[in-house]
Design a protein around this nucleic acid. Structure first.
Lengths: 147, 147
DNA sequence: GATTGTCGCTTGTCTTTTGCAAGCGAGTAG
DNA sequence: CTACTCGCTTGCAAAAGACAAGCGACAATC
């Protein structure tokens, strides 16, 4: 009897711990929003499109992302395969971040968001030259040229 | 002296009350995320694209949006001109919601999000026939055909 | 005509997330 | 030895979110 109750508790707990909980639905829009539907994730991806790589780079963006949120988002974006990291020095070991193909493929989403916002809020900034012409492939190309 | 302090308090308060606070930056992506960068807003817009109009319709979506969040988002989306509402009955007065041109123009954003998610998570649902071919204009057209 | 039910919310309460500031460890520079 | 940088982590208060219950204005039913 009590054993049974304990088992239920354990199961409920393990459900909370393992695999970041079940999706709300299998709708692709809803699932996408569960991954990147917040105010900061795409700002970080934007910065990476613009060539930023390091923790300090992201911190210096004009939006002023809180440092604990930045650390959390970098971890989640990596868990979801949107970004990757590699160490750029030992002693102490430090990492720089880069877009994976999955992350680069978010470019069309951001382009559409920007087109939409520019249309209804003309005061906001104009993206850098060639931004609308960029493709996920051209972003990844930029990485391979560096190495 | 005390008058001065009171003035300061009034100014700070009025800054909080008027116009929903200053944007983090004028970057169009960042501003767009401040409007619709959350897990629920685009789910509601999606439902409206699919022809849902009423509070109860939105509640019945498979994601199960909490009712207070739904009320809050409908209010905010209306404040930002993304949706509108009109009464469909008196006694008691009840409203139904519809996409404005600004709201309908979010369709390309959602289409790109869905393309992205389908590419990296093939298990999720396939959108209804003709979804990718729809345009903001065709969504608004649907409204005018009803009346 | 009292009761039950529906619709579109609002309210209360608790939990989670966010924002801000401070701290910290492993180094380098002076 | 002290000061400083970088990339975080920790602590805490405030805001937002989730869940359940309630509510007002009616329509339908008993």
């Amino acid at each position: 009897m009590y054993t049974c109750i304990l088992q239920v508790i354990v199961v409920v707990w393990s459900m909370k711990i393992e695999s970041s909980s079940a999706p709300r639905s299998l709708c692709p829009l809803s699932k996408a929003l569960e991954l990147i539907g917040d105010k900061w994730s795409l700002v970080i991806v934007r910065d990476m499109c613009l060539g930023k790589k390091r923790y300090g780079d992201f911190q210096q963006s004009p939006e002023g992302i809180p440092t604990n949120i930045l650390a959390d988002r970098l971890k989640k974006l990596e868990e979801h395969g949107i970004i990757g990291k590699r160490s750029y020095q030992q002693k102490p070991v430090r990492y720089e971040y880069f877009l994976t193909p999955k992350g680069a493929d978010l470019l069309p989403v951001m382009q559409q968001l920007i087109i939409w916002m520019k249309k209804y809020d003309p005061d906001c900034w104009t993206p850098p030259e060639g931004f609308y012409d960029a493709t996920p492939e051209s972003l990844l190309q930029a990485y391979s040229e560096i190495e």
